[in-house]
Design a protein around this nucleic acid. Structure first.
Length: 549
RNA sequence: GACCCCGUAGCUCAACUGGAUAGAGCACCGGCCUUCUAAGCCGGAUGUUGCAGGUUCAAGUCCUGCCGGGGUCGCCA
């Protein structure tokens, strides 16, 4: 059991012994901002004051008296000002935890609260009509870390990319590719237009089309674009996969929309109809999503008989539901927030619960070159692809900078700053701490006698800097849990920076390898635990933890 | 017009989801390397949390109304 849970249990027991019923009052545990307020605090007495009609101080005093901690768990219980209960973690508890970091190694921070439940995160899912751009990079960073986080708290989480490989846009893409091919061959007629996808990247695709392929596609009739469209889609999907690989993001599955047609799409339609949520109007079939809070009803089948994208998406979620996920997350681009109510309506009908589908919006990315914003319009030619971003600043830097901010807020990404390999760049601060420790360990090997780690005495690690560091290590698991459950990867980077700060401070204040073998071994032990946790946070964020810099 | 997101230090962002004196990084100024990595550490200034009300023991956080920025509102995908 994690330390935070221990605290929670002991508090609940104490509250129970006091006869306080706390079922509808959540037990909040927080890390106080000020050191004088201890290591962990709860305002529970303040929350209870109203219900119990007693003064918060009185409640807090009473609970404090009933609290039953072992000497080696909590060393001080304090009731403070308005009614806080402040706890100070015992030294022995901190030392035990430092050992735990080492013993558990890569698994330190992991829990099993997910109990193996299957869930799925769908992210990026950009149409294969061109290379991935910067917003997709942000989505890739955020989505992959959420998958990592959920796995580390015990969910069987899967990451999936939904590939829209059919529909009008494939036709349009085909038309543009046909233009590029005819351009290549010098067959362009006067007034012929490229259509929806004027980007240069289709030239590369056109270069791969052989004469016989083209002849086969054109044989249907002069305007058929299906062959071109499929060809372009496959090539661009391959490009996308390569972009993602370079970025270090791995999906468990690429799900193709085309596999849903026509069977699953039919079924999805029927489920909505059978549940009484569909009606016809002017030749089209509607889903009465307003029943579920949407602002207007949405078309499922157009009057020409073709399913809408929306119906396809419902079919996709029907498929997910049938795969048995306990819940799923859709990570959507900033221009898709309008889709949330209708997808929740679908979730309500398919799964009987609108919260089966959880959504998360990834905000816009604005690229800056120093102070100068880069124009993201396609016309300007300054549009930056994910590949260019990776080549420019590196995958680690890009990922880290994306992860530093809350994911739903708009983000300014300064390329000039990202490119700098200096202290201005926040990634290196954390990586440097890791590399620094690795170096100390190498140095220590040459100076210290080898010792069985179980026999190392840690009890002299009692300076303020050592204690602060150990407290930070202690709260790693609960930080992972909080980040995972709230889908907030940025908490990891915040935690990592704090941990790095505490380490650097400690390093500056105390020499690790000295003539005092006992003390050196103890400090080395602590520093190795710190290295382990730094490595664990960085692994969750998908960023490399270098051993030298 | 309707709906959604954002507004916090000069800049970029946090604030444990309603808790204590709103914190970091950058930039700026000053100090610290003959000993394990100075990509580091220490110190300094910076705030009416867009504005106005409201809810309560407690509001940057919740509710209402404004102001400013961005976005979405197809039988497109």
């Amino acid at each position: 059991m994690r330390f935070r849970e221990v605290i929670g249990h002991r508090l609940k027991d104490a509250l129970h012994r006091c006869g306080y019923v706390t079922d509808d009052v959540p037990l909040v545990l927080e890390r106080p901002r000020l050191k004088e307020h201890g290591d962990i605090a709860t305002p529970i007495a303040l929350s209870l004051a109203k219900v119990l009609k007693k003064s918060p101080m009185e409640i807090a005093e009473r609970v404090a008296r009933e609290l039953d901690f072992a000497q080696d768990e909590v060393s001080k219980i304090e009731v403070a000002k308005p009614g806080y209960l402040n706890l100070r973690v015992a030294h022995d508890q901190l030392l035990r935890n430092v050992r735990e970091c080492r013993v558990e190694g890569d698994a330190y921070g992991a829990t099993d609260i997910g109990k193996g439940a299957r869930c799925q995160i769908e992210y990026v899912s950009a149409n294969p009509t061109g290379p991935l751009v910067v917003v997709s990079a942000r989505a890739a960073a955020v989505g992959s870390v959420i998958v990592n986080l959920l796995r580390s708290i015990g969910f069987a989480a899967e990451g999936e990319y939904y590939v829209n490989d059919c529909g009008n846009q494939v036709q349009a893409l085909g038309k543009s590719l046909r233009f590029r091919l005819r351009e290549r061959l010098g067959h362009l007629g006067a007034g012929e237009e490229i259509g929806a996808y004027p980007g240069d990247y289709l030239k590369a695709v056109a270069a791969r089309v052989t004469a016989s392929q083209a002849a086969g596609w054109d044989a249907d009739n002069g305007t058929a674009t299906a062959g071109y469209g499929d060809f372009a889609t496959e090539h661009l999907l391959a490009v996308i996969k390569e972009d993602l690989r370079l970025f270090g993001v791995k999906f468990d599955n690429f799900f193709r929309e085309s596999t849903l047609h026509p069977h699953t799409v039919e079924e999805a339609r029927r489920i909505i109809e059978d549940n009484g949520h569909a009606y016809s109007d002017s030749g089209a079939l509607y889903f009465r999503t307003t029943t579920f809070g949407d602002e207007k009803d949405r078309v499922l089948v157009k009057s020409d008989g073709n399913p809408t994208y929306f119906l396809g998406d419902i079919a996709y979620h029907l498929d997910k539901y049938r795969r048995g996920y306990k819940w799923v997350v859709d990570i959507l681009g900033p221009d898709h927030h309008g889709h949330i109510p209708r997808m929740q309506a679908a979730s309500s009908v398919l799964a009987g619960d609108k919260n089966w589908l959880k959504t998360l919006i990834v905000g816009w990315v604005r690229l800056l070159e120093g102070d100068r914003p880069l124009s993201m319009s396609k016309r300007s030619g300054e549009i930056i692809t994910m590949r260019e971003l990776i080549e420019d600043v590196g995958a680690d830097v890009a990922k880290y900078l994306f992860l530093m901010r809350r994911s739903n807020t708009p983000l300014d990404f300064d390329l000039e700053l990202a490119r700098k390999q200096s202290d201005e760049n926040p990634v290196y601060y954390v990586q440097y701490a890791h590399a620094r420790i690795a170096n100390v360990i190498r140095f220590a090997k040459t100076k210290l006698q080898k010792k069985q780690i179980e026999s190392i005495d840690l009890s002299r690690l009692d300076s303020p800097e050592e204690r602060d560091l150990m407290v930070q290590l202690l709260f790693f698991p609960s930080e992972v849990e909080a980040a995972a459950l709230s889908f907030e990867p940025h908490r990891l980077t915040t935690y990592a920076r704090e941990l790095a700060t505490l380490f650097h401070r400690f390093y500056h204040e105390h020499r690790i390898v000295t003539d005092d073998q006992e003390m050196s071994n103890a400090r080395l032990y602590l520093v190795e635990a710190t290295k382990q946790v730094l490595s664990n946070v960085l692994r969750l964020t998908g960023v490399d933890a270098p051993n030298s810099m």
